[in-house]
Amino acid sequence: MIPTKELGFLQKVNQYPKTTYIYHTKIEERLDMHSHNKHQLTYVEGGAAFLKTNDNSYFLPARHYVWIPAEMEHFIELKTSVSMIRNIYIPTHILPNNEFYSKMGIYPASNLILEMILYTENWSENIFEKEKSKYQYIKTLGTIIAEISKNPLPVVIPTTTNVRLSPILKHIHFHVDQPLLLKDVAKLFGFSSRSLSRLFRDTLDISFLQYVKLTRIILSMEKLLQTELSISEIAYASGYNSLATFSNTFYNLAKIRPVDFRKTNREISK
């Protein structure tokens, strides 16, 4: 058997299928797309991050946690430096039957959930069943999360490795603060408007306009949490000429107004 200290991070997580595994760190584990045999609960403090799966990119804002089902391929990309990444890995067999555990989701971290995560701050790596109080604590955390986490963050950007579409998506991300019209982008990349529209629908299952809209709203979320820009400045920096249009679009996608999104996330992160 390989000594534990010589195992890689993923090997350590998977080494004992029945243990819970705790890993809090200020240093990002730079992992490629991967999966593991346990559910993963991750809370990122002091920065912005994206969860990438094979199909989508999920923005992970402040005061939210991500639930990643066992065996789901993913990796987490940090957009800024962070103060702490808190990871709790939970074996599947200790949790009750609940559809919640089989779906990836990003949820607001209530005071109760946050306090329970922070309580494990000084725990490290494997917790075996014989450590009854700690083991039961993690089991309880997993059970409570499924009971109170009802509304996942709905803002998701689909991703693709399609060689024709990937450079167009990159162009949108780099020019999201500028006018982005289907006909102009299509012409720039040698498509007709109709063929580019069909490519978006067939590959990503959303329209060109919807993709631009999602990209702009996620950019605005980053700016709301990481800058001191006014709501109007963020609206214009995100490609909107009207504050009302920006606010309404943000609300339609995130179910919260931009000013409330900033206020709520900043107040409860203090």
Rank of each mutant, 00 (worst) to 15 (best):
M84Y: 01
T215Y: 00
E147C: 08
S220Y: 02
H93L: 07
Y101T: 04
F191N: 11
S102R: 09
I88S: 02
I94L: 06
D202Q: 12
R164K: 15
K139C: 07
L112H: 00
S207Q: 05
P154G: 03
S110H: 01
H175A: 06
R198H: 10
M84Q: 13
N97M: 04
F208M: 02
T160I: 06
R164N: 14
T80E: 11
G190Y: 07
P91C: 06
E131G: 04
Y101L: 00
I94W: 01
T160L: 07
E131I: 05
V176A: 13
P91N: 04
A109G: 01
Y137D: 06
H173K: 15
I106V: 12
F174K: 15
S195E: 15
V163E: 14
K213E: 14
N111Y: 05
L224F: 05
G190F: 07
S166E: 15
L188D: 14
L224P: 01
N151H: 07
K150E: 01
K139F: 01
S220M: 02
P158Q: 06
N162G: 10
E121G: 03
S81Q: 15
K103A: 09
L204V: 02
M104W: 00
L114R: 11
H173N: 14
K79S: 07
N97A: 08
A146C: 06
F174V: 11
R216P: 05
L199P: 01
H171L: 08
F100P: 02
I106K: 02
G105F: 03
I157T: 13
G142S: 03
Q210C: 09
H175L: 13
L114E: 11
R198P: 00
L180I: 10
I144V: 15
E147L: 15
A109K: 03
T159R: 15
T120A: 11
P167A: 02
N126W: 13
I117N: 03
K187T: 13
M221Y: 02
P91L: 04
F191L: 14
I145C: 02
E129C: 01
Y137S: 04
I218R: 12
I106E: 00
E147R: 11
I138C: 04
K103M: 04
R164Y: 14
T140Y: 09
E99Q: 09
Y137K: 01
Y137F: 14
P167T: 04
N122R: 12
L196H: 03
T159Y: 06
E125K: 13
D177M: 11
N98Y: 02
P96C: 09
T203K: 10
S81A: 14
M116V: 09
Y137C: 11
L182C: 06
L165C: 11
S110A: 04
K183Y: 10
G105I: 02
L214W: 03
V185Y: 11
L214P: 03
I144A: 07
S133V: 12
G142D: 02
W123M: 14
L153H: 03
L165I: 09
F189G: 04
K223V: 04
L169E: 09
K132D: 10
L141V: 08
V156Y: 05
P167G: 01
I127T: 12
L196R: 05
I85W: 00
V163L: 14
V82L: 08
Y137E: 05
